[in-house]
């Protein structure tokens, strides 16, 4: 939303979406009925996806909807249907007060640390450096003339000259392409490892649930 970036629209949207996410999560952990809790969990996943869009991570937002809401929530609901007839539902165990204390303390600690740490701010850097601004928000030129080598990592991005058309591949406006580039350059080993992990999870789940004839 180039026209209203940084204005009150994104602020209001941020607080509304965060309120929905937090309220839905509170409903998940306090409801007795497990099916309703699963529905509120799906709602909280949707709200978090909206939060990702506000944080300029559109690819991750749709991946969140596709994986979390479309698959993991359905999986949880199937499990709830298969293990039904539970009288207790979502009742609390004896550690309720201790858990609330620990969670509150940890949350307060995290909030305290985040408010009192000194993070280098990208927006501040953007407003002081034209090349960084060009790379962040839109059009820039890959200046091959002062590249130090032939690899992609040596090409330097500069703000395009006046009136010229640069390439619009800013840092956040093509997150899909950048994530793809990271997958095959810097993160190729975790990528392969994660595919082996998924294969192992599939085989494990199938092996666990094979019927052996006399079981129900």
């Amino acid at each position: 939303m180039n026209g209203v970036e940084g204005s009150s629209v994104t602020d209001v949207a941020f607080w509304v979406v965060s309120a929905i996410a937090i309220a839905a999560s509170i409903m998940v952990v306090t409801l007795r009925d497990i099916f309703r809790a699963a529905l509120f969990l799906a709602l909280s996943f949707l709200a978090v996806a909206g939060l990702y869009i506000l944080l300029r991570a559109e690819f991750l937002a749709v991946v969140q909807i596709l994986v979390y809401v479309g698959a993991i929530s359905i999986l949880i609901v199937f499990a709830i249907v298969l293990v039904r007839d539970m009288p207790g539902g979502g009742k609390d165990n004896h550690l309720k007060v201790v858990a609330a204390t620990v969670a509150a303390l940890l949350g307060a600690l995290a909030i305290f640390v985040s408010y009192n740490s000194d993070f280098t701010n990208l927006d501040a850097l953007e407003s002081s450096n034209a090349d960084v601004a060009a790379a962040l928000t839109g059009t820039y030129d890959l200046d091959a003339s002062n590249a130090v080598g032939d690899e992609y990592e040596d090409q330097i991005a500069v703000a395009p000259p006046e009136g010229a058309e640069g390439t619009e591949i800013g840092i956040f406006s093509n997150s899909t392409g950048s994530i793809g580039g990271l997958f095959i350059r810097d993160f190729v080993l975790p990528f392969e490892a994660v595919s082996v992990l998924l294969l192992a999870a599939m085989i494990g789940a199938l092996a666990l649930l094979r019927q052996r004839g006399e079981e129900s």
Binding site: E58, F59, A61, V62, V63, I65, L66, V69, G70, A71, S173, N174, T176
Partner: peptide, 13 residues
């Protein structure tokens, strides 16, 4: 700029 993926994600809802 993730239009196609958006369509797939929403139809999975």
């Amino acid at each position: 700029n993730v239009g196609i993926l958006f369509i797939i994600a929403i139809t999975s809802l």
